[in-house]
């Protein structure tokens, strides 16, 4: 599906997800994200943000409505096809999820290696993304030798290395101080400007005020606001 010649990367259409108890984690959520967009999804704990990530990565299927990610209909996605969807995504986590026994370079290379890339291709691409995230000089450092901000940059490099069309960052600044948080969102904005679609889940409202981006606000499982903000937090439309 395309809008204004731009491909729809994420489409949530009347999406609901309920627990076994019957209680809904999210309900009636509809929105689309197009190629090259930058989107913040925010809300308090229990608003349904994590459920949305699980739906986007094919970890769960919606109990209501339809979810389409990069052309993959998650509702009908067979277990064997989930890896194919995930190869089009780059996921960044709050807790970085770096392998402690591997250097920064090895952590990033690992994501390519497991998909069967060759050594030359890996070396070239890893070097490029490490430079992009500003850690070319820390390639041989182990995660424990890096600051929180640097570790998150490595995690972003790992998410980028397989050249995914969509980057999903789940609370990427949750473990960082305000300055490092700002730098991480700056980096994600830069990646967005290079052509990747970026979705950032956060509950840090200060970041929303500082970046003029589209924001979806979730409250108790429902989408209550979908607006583009101006710097300072005012609504642009």
């Amino acid at each position: 599906m395309t809008t204004n010649n731009r491909k729809t990367v994420i489409e949530f259409s009347g999406v609901g997800e309920s627990y076994q108890s019957g209680e809904f984690a999210i309900r009636g959520v509809s929105f689309t994200v197009e190629e090259g967009d930058f989107l913040f999804i925010c809300g308090e704990s229990g608003a349904g943000k994590s459920t949305m990530i699980k739906l986007m990565t094919g970890e769960i299927k919606p109990t209501e409505g339809r979810v389409t990610i990069n052309g993959y209909n998650v509702n009908k996605l067979k277990p064997g096809k989930v890896p194919h969807l995930r190869r089009t995504l780059g996921v960044v986590f709050q807790d970085f999820r770096l392998i402690k026994k591997k250097t920064a370079e090895e952590n990033v290379a690992f994501a390519m290696r497991v998909l069967g890339a060759g050594p030359v291709q890996i070396r070239r691409r890893v070097s490029y993304v490490m430079e992009l995230v500003g850690l070319k000089d820390k390639m041989c450092s182990y995660p424990t030798e890096l600051s929180g901000g640097e570790q998150q940059r490595v995690a972003i490099a790992r998410a980028l290395v397989n050249n995914p069309s969509l980057i999903i960052a789940d609370e990427p600044t949750g473990n960082l101080d305000p300055q490092r948080s700002y730098e991480i969102i700056e980096l994600l904005s830069k990646i967005n400007q290079l052509g990747s679609t970026v979705v950032v889940i956060t509950h840090d409202y200060e970041l929303l005020r500082r970046f003029a981006k589209r924001v979806i606000y979730m409250n108790q499982g429902s989408l209550v606001m979908d607006k583009v903000l101006r710097p300072g937090g005012e609504e642009a439309q």
């Binding site: 194919h84 969807l85 995930r86 995504l89 996921v91 392998i99 998909l115 069967g116 790992r158």
Partner: peptide, 17 residues
């Protein structure tokens, strides 16, 4: 287990793991 979780997240098939 962390490696396996990352492998799954970047799209490695169960067979590869």
């Amino acid at each position: 287990r962390e490696e396996i979780a990352i492998m799954r997240m970047v799209g490695a098939t169960k067979g590869t793991i």
